[in-house]
Amino acid sequence: MNTLRLKPEEVDQAAQFIKAGKLVAFPTETVYGLGADATNEEAVKQVYAAKGRPSDNPLIVTVSGPDQVAQYAAGITPKVQALFDNFWPGPLTIILPIKPNALPSAVTGGLRTAAFRNPADKLTREIISRAGVPIVGPSANTSGKPSPTTADHVLHDMDGKIAAVLDDGQTKVGVESTIVDMSVVPPVILRPGAISAHDLEPIIGKVLNDSHKVKANEIPKAPGMKYKHYAPNAQVIIVRDPADFAKAIAWAEEKAPVGLLATDAVLEKQNTVRFKSQYSLGNDVESATHRLFAGLRYFDLNPEIKIILAQGFTPDGLGLAYMNRLEKAAGLQYFD
């Protein structure tokens, strides 16, 4: 199979592929997703196969708007409607009870809930509108690897496995959407993202945070809760304090070739001639979150690097989303 790189004006071709039961990677404001007709179980199974994704890891249902959610979900309460009104389209995924037999079990993992997302990217909403069906939307990468933030990243993992990728350039947020479970009281954030509990609580009241790793015999309600995620080939080691980078470098160099993933302020203090394998996270946590996955993928293109020393941030606000992804990429390995 030759994977096509479609231009934005070829959105109708992308929709035709979806209608035909084929796979198309699509842009969102967060990361690129891997789309298939969410009502077509055979097409959905192809998504699992292309990604190498465990079958008990449910998929997000990407919709053109709230009206489409109502065809499949129950429990659209005033609070849920308030989330639609205030945060959609945007980087918020909402878990809701679903109507009996509304979606294939391959989408839900056999659960009675499903996660719905209405992305800000107009091209993706246009694909869904033209296809006439919602699409599943896991990240368009090999399962366990860093999520793709460009079409090139998608093709690195998916070339020859999917029909096409619709190229709309670099994503803006850089980490996946916040997932909030509205099927429970009080609501619970299962995956942090650009929208925090602080943003949600003025709209819907008390919101809990729970990003625990589920047990082996438990089906996760949201992606990213059970299996290893975001990991490059090299071992990632998190450096809590930027002042510790010099010690961390000296320690790591005794073991293997080292790459640095840090802000410009940290990189400038290191020997930049010696450390050619480095990737800038910019100046702050916002730019770091935007560049994190691209940085992890950069080191996969430098296979001589065996250890990545990555800068940590305080886990609050956007830093909570950044550290959630970085800790999973590192397997909770810190330099201490």
Rank of each mutant, 00 (worst) to 15 (best):
S177R: 03
M182P: 05
S183T: 03
V185Y: 07
P186F: 05
P187I: 03
L190H: 07
R191T: 03
I195S: 03
I195W: 02
H198Q: 15
D199A: 04
L200Y: 05
E201R: 13
P202D: 02
P202Q: 03
P202W: 00
G205M: 06
K206S: 08
K206Y: 13
K206T: 14
V207G: 07
V207E: 07
L208F: 09
L208P: 08
L208Q: 14
L208N: 13
S211F: 15
H212Q: 09
K213M: 12
K213W: 14
K215T: 14
I219Q: 06
K221E: 11
P223Q: 04
Y227M: 05
H229P: 11
A231C: 10
A231E: 10
P232N: 01
P232E: 01
N233F: 13
A234L: 08
I238V: 13
I238D: 10
V239F: 04
R240W: 07
P242W: 02
D244H: 13
D244T: 04
F245Q: 06
K247G: 14
A248Q: 00
A248M: 01
E253K: 11
A256C: 00
A256D: 02
A256F: 00
P257L: 00
V258M: 02
V258N: 02
L260H: 07
A265R: 10
K269Q: 15
Q270Y: 05
T272S: 11
T272W: 03
T272H: 10
T272E: 15
V273C: 11
S277F: 13
S277V: 09
Y279E: 07
Y279A: 09
S280L: 02
S280Y: 05
L281Y: 01
N283K: 15
D284C: 05
